[in-house]
Design a protein around this nucleic acid. Structure first.
Length: 876
RNA sequence: GCCCGCCUGGCGGAACGGUAGACGCAGCGGACUUAAAAUCCGCAGCCCGUUGGGGCGUGGGGGUUCGAGUCCCCCGGCGGGCACCA
């Protein structure tokens, strides 16, 4: 299927010549591949400056979606543009191929995860290749290939030797029926998504990468990432969460299970006088001690375990507590004691797992205090408030102010009060100032089959024993079954039974696999030398890294990018890399959205099932039944508001799809995919082709000695467009580049209507030739076609340098200046560039409309901004 | 709940603090055609006015400025992230 025209009259005796994308696109794709246009060496020696363009590699779900089309089109524009600008461009592609969906397919449909994954890769590779991306396919790899993950195991072992790996306990969501750990997204209303069983928290011994070791560096280096979006840096800074506060000990009124005091971390030591309770996490050792002799406490803790581990679940869930009956002494107030509660909103992972509650100045504490009728004493007085009447209702006061009701702190501003409180704690020997981090170590253990095996062996005698380098990769076994709950690696009859590499005794292989974020934390480095026998070739990464432009979804703003930044540092400290920051430039694209449609019975409908009638009504195409048009939202299978890129490319061609996706709006915002928008983009490809045909029909001749007004005007438009499109592409304003090219096409069409003269003919051929090269990053196939028509036998556009604007043709003769009276527009005057103040003001006053507005008025001020504006400010 | 964004005609958007609405989509009018499609040309923020022109307008409210879509504060709506989805 190519064109949709089946009307026999379309094949009339003199058919209009049309651009046949279906024939042209594969032809140019083959030409690029045959000439090796996009190939670079691992360690180039040609002296060109390097530029590494990388888009986030896809998960091989089976089909590409519009989000991929957008992501890879953006990257391809950058890659092609930088190549034309003289850079040696590295632009690779691969597959983030481990993950849960493959295991789900195995459990639900009996397909082996490896087969499912590799079949999907083959299908998606073919789809990507039809997009005409300037990728170097010779560098392709998939993370599920032992040739990749073996190197990952080597990196892990190097990290282990460098002290960057730790084994510790952590809490997970446990599905007791399926016998598996659940992702937060698999916990729905407290139940496992598949089994429906009530989820429990369970403690497991897991592998952790010590990302917290780099917390200060990861935070400080954000300031150097000046080509990252500010909001991503902000999100990362908040995630790392450096806080200054105090660690302090509260003495228990009576020891419980050998524990005599509770340590608390607080960022608000200035509010200690507002304390009304102390709360510990349900997982706190003291809580366990109390539960041992108090069945009600044990029941409360068990109840807390039935809720999810996610921050959302903890923060939005109703606050519950259990009063242990224990009390603690206040560090500053003699004889004052406060109750110790176990509370479900206290996080064991942050600080010390215990807090002191100051309800007046912390919303969570206030909610808790109101629920259990605990006292609320304000101790920070907002500026201008009256100490006698200031009271807290439903909202905690967290703003600035001065301490009151606070003994020796009274009258101090918040910051000064914090310092004074810390100093007092240190003098009293019960606490000290401390910097704390929100960032936690990265738990990488997953109890799953379809992931990279963690290369260690557990030996009863030797403990944890790394798999020797010469036994890498530790390969996944192929013969696994998914018919039982739990981890297939653990169930495998023989795989885990191995001899200890150290002592030779019977030992057990680690059956956990890595979090798939590990796979994607260093793939950018592997692409520099994808066939190296070591994880990376040092000369190759030294040449290519960091990635100059990384492009992907904002949803990866925190985890993937932070893990990659960590991995680069860990690889640096183990000698694999010379850089700490993997991505010098980052661009985060918006989502692709579409209207959603619902039938009368509530069933979601695919866009191709509905039709919009001329009167505006939307109906089911086959039945004529009415359709409810829903919100425009992210494309998703469940709402069926998806558009298949394969179908779009088959119907309109890759260039049209690329052009529309670039033209619709700025790339960092969400875009709406519309049928009319694609159709418009398609019309433009045909229009451009017709302009090229018309220009190619003009005789080719050497440049004339001089140009008449029409030819000069066209040449000015041509060179202004070179400048404006270059500027737009440099700034990622691809929609603006598209608009400038539309204007340029309009200018060429206008010139086409003028009488043919040799100078104008020459300018027409020049303009269309330049148009082809300016359009090439976005519509590379059509650009080649047009270029080949104008200059048969010339090099490919993909091999040409970017056009240069002639400065002489960029200068203008007049500039339009706005004239305002009291800031209101009253006229526009045309002046030579850089007209000085006095003549500009005189010309402005001479405008009838301005003169009328100024008549009889006193002018208080005259503003003149050269080449921009004149503003007369009238006096009182 | 916490953190981070976004909001401009019917729609997507453009706009170094300096003529708001470039360009496109949809729409309307015209040309071409026996007719239609395709194509080409033109109109178009809203309101008042025959014209010249005037008023109002960038989610709402306030502020800074000669001048605010743009900078600051408050409010509203929509979206992203929250550590085992990728």
């Amino acid at each position: 299927m190519t064109e949709t025209t089946t009307d026999p009259r379309a094949a009339a005796p003199e058919p209009a010549r049309r651009y046949d994308f279906a024939a042209a696109e594969p032809r140019w794709q083959e030409a690029w591949a045959a000439r090796g246009c996009f190939r670079v060496a691992d360690v180039p020696t040609d002296g060109r400056p390097k530029y590494y363009v990388l888009e986030m590699f896809p998960y091989p779900s089976g089909k590409i979606h519009m989000g991929h089309v957008r992501n890879y089109t953006l990257g391809d524009v950058v890659a092609r543009y930088k190549r034309a600008r003289g850079f040696s461009v590295l632009h690779p592609m691969g597959w983030d191929a481990f993950g849960l969906p493959a295991e789900n397919a195995a459990r639900e449909r009996g397909i082996h995860p490896a087969k499912w994954t590799w079949d999907n890769i083959a299908a998606m590779r073919a789809e990507l290749q039809r997009m005409g991306l300037s990728l170097e396919w010779e560098r392709e790899f998939a993370t599920c290939d032992p040739a990749y993950y073996g190197h990952q195991q080597k990196l892990f072992l190097d990290f282990l030797r460098a002290g960057l790996v730790e084994r510790k306990e952590s809490w997970v969501n446990w599905d007791p029926v399926d016998g598996t750990v659940l992702a937060n997204e698999q916990v729905i209303d407290g139940r496992g998504w598949r089994s429906g069983a009530l989820v429990e928290k369970k403690q497991l011994s897991q592998w952790f990468l010590r990302i917290t070791h780099y917390a200060p560096e990861l935070l400080d280096a954000l300031a150097t990432l000046d080509r990252w979006p500010e909001r991503v840096r902000l999100m990362q800074a908040n995630w790392i969460g450096r806080s200054e506060g105090a660690r302090l000990r509260f003495a228990l009124d009576r020891p419980a299970e050998g524990i005599t005091d509770v340590e608390v971390y607080t960022t608000r030591p200035d509010t200690l006088y507002g304390m009304s309770f102390l709360a510990i996490a349900p997982e706190h050792p003291l809580a366990a001690g109390i539960a041992a002799r108090d069945p009600k406490a044990a029941a409360f803790i068990a109840e807390c375990r039935r809720h999810g581990t996610s921050e959302v679940a903890i923060e939005t869930g109703e606050k519950h507590g259990y009063d242990t009956g224990l009390r603690v002494a206040h560090p500053f107030v003699k004889d004052a004691t406060f109750p110790v509660w176990i509370a479900n909103f206290v996080l064991m992972d942050y600080g010390t797992g215990a807090i002191f509650g100051c309800p007046a100045h912390d919303q969570r504490d206030l909610d808790f205090a109101r629920k259990y009728a605990l006292p609320v004493t304000p101790v920070v007085l907002p500026p201008g408030a009256d100490a006698a009447t200031f009271a807290i209702e439903d909202t905690a006061y967290v703003g600035p102010g001065t301490a009151f009701n606070s003994g020796f702190l009274d009258g101090l501003a918040v910051d000064a009060a914090k310092r004074a409180a810390i100093a007092a704690l240190e003098r009293a020997g019960c606490g000290a100032g401390e910097v704390n981090w929100r960032l936690r170590d990265w738990g990488v253990s997953r109890q799953r089959y379809w992931g990279c095996p963690i290369p260690v062996i557990h030996c009863a005698a030797c403990g944890i024993v790394p798999v020797p380098d010469d036994q890498l990769p530790v390969r996944l076994p192929d013969d696994v079954s998914f018919d039982r709950p739990g981890n297939p690696l653990d169930h495998h009859p023989s795989w885990k039974h191995v001899a200890c590499p150290a002592c030779g005794a019977a030992a057990r292989r680690e059956t956990d696999t890595f979090d798939t974020f590990v796979d994607s934390s260093w793939y950018y480095a592997r692409f520099c030398s994808p066939h190296a026998a070591t994880p990376v070739d040092r000369a190759a990464v030294d040449h290519w890294l960091p990635v100059d432009q990384y492009i992907g979804g904002i949803e990866h703003a925190i985890l993937h990018l932070l893990y990659s930044r960590f991995f680069a540092r860990a690889m640096r400290d183990t000698g694999h890399l010379g850089v700490a920051e993997p991505f010098a430039g980052l661009f985060t694209q918006g989502m692709v959205t579409h209207e959603s449609y619902r039938a009368a019975d509530g069933r979601w409908l695919y866009p191709e099932e509905v039709e919009r009638r001329p009167d505006g009504a939307t109906i089911v195409r086959d039945t004529g039944a009415p359709v409810t048009v829903g919100r425009v939202e992210a494309m998703s299978k469940s709402r069926r508001n998806t558009v298949d890129p394969g179908a779009i490319i088959a119907r309109y061609g890759a260039d049209t799809a690329r052009w529309f996706i670039l033209s619709d709006n700025p790339p960092d915002r969400d875009m709406e995919w519309t049928e009319s928008g694609v159709a418009g983009a398609y019309r433009f490809t045909q229009r451009l082709f017709r302009l090229a045909e018309a220009a190619a029909d003009r005789p080719a001749a050497p440049p004339p000695a001089s140009f008449g007004p029409a030819a000069l005007a066209l040449r000015r438009a041509t060179h202004r467009t070179i400048a404006s499109v270059s500027e737009a592409l440099d700034g990622f304003a691809f929609n603006v580049a598209v608009a400038r090219l539309h204007e340029f096409a309009n200018a060429i069409a206008e010139a086409e209507r003028a009488a043919a003269t040799p100078d104008l003919d020459w300018a027409r051929r020049e303009s269309v030739g330049i148009l082809a090269r300016l359009v090439a990053p976005m519509m590379p196939h059509l650009a080649e076609d047009v270029h080949a028509r104008l200059a048969p036998g010339a090099p490919l556009v993909a091999e040409l340098a970017w056009p240069e604007a002639d400065p002489a043709l960029l200068a203008t003769e007049t500039i339009t200046i706005a004239v305002q009276v009291n800031g209101k527009l009253r006229a526009a005057i045309a002046l030579p560039p850089d007209t000085p103040r006095d003549p500009a003001l005189a010309a402005a006053r001479a405008e009838p409309n301005v003169a009328r507005a100024l008549e009889g008025q006193r002018i208080a001020k005259e503003i003149h901004v050269p080449n921009r504006i004149v503003n007369f400010v009238l006096g009182a």
